[in-house]
Amino acid sequence: MARDVSPWKAALLSLALLALLLGAWELALSGPAGPGGAAMDPEYAALLGQAAQAGGQTAMPAPSAILARLVELLADPFHRRGTNDQGIGIQIAYSLWRVAAGFGLAMVVAIPLGFLIGMSPLLNAALNPFIQVLRPVSPLAWMPLALYTIKDSSISSVFVIFICSVWPMLLNTAFGVASVRREWLNVAATLEAGSWKTAMRVILPAAAPTILTGMRISIGIAWLVIVAAEMLVGGTGIGYWVWNQWNNLSIADIVIAILLIGVVGLLLDRLLGWVAGRVAWQE
């Protein structure tokens, strides 16, 4: 399994697979339209309306068309022409802002609370039932409650991000803090380091890699959830934009959004991976 693979070979194979996929896609769409629209879902055809009448062609764009559209979108990603026509960069920035706010809030709550839970077996046992029940709840289930209490759709989606990011961070922080080696705590104790110094200079660095793992899981979930949350509440953000393009039946835009969501998610993960590398230690 762990045998070394030449990165060039892997990259070459990746490119070949991509070319094969895109080529097949392009080819499948460029061929003569089959025996009419019979293959087309009638409901979809109805939705398509004029487009369907205008030749019975599918709305699925070929990779070349998507690429052209991508270039078009990225040429002016930050334009604002009214509420329903804002650049894709602006939409992603809205989503990132919400994720940052919810995630940051979750950090502020989860890391100190996780510290307490990790240090106190009593608190751990007392809070565990709440955590176990709330953790598996889909964050979107909180949305109506958030909308009702907060009465602001944008802040509600921040809250949903908060609630989905908080659990992995909380559990990982508690676990990391609880499993700090006894001997390091003994060293701190014999040096009369005091609780604050012990927490900041011994427990935090010792638990940091575990905490970062939790944060990395959280940011992944948050980025998954923000798309769904924005589809639900609308207004702005990449999730809303995807839904809007579905209503416009711009499949190319949806494919581009999927691609960009993936790339941004990757970058977020890499960012935290880089931080995790900075705080990692080995025995």
């Binding site: 080696r181 001997e183 003994n186 060293v187 104790a189 009369e192 660095p205 010792a206 940091a208 230690w281």
Partner: peptide
């Protein structure tokens, strides 16, 4: 009563903090 800087310990397993 409790640990003190007056009594230093050399631990069996060195007990160095690996991040420092």
């Amino acid at each position: 009563s409790g640990p003190s800087l007056d009594r230093a310990v050399i631990f069996q397993g060195h007990a160095l903090m690996p991040w420092l």
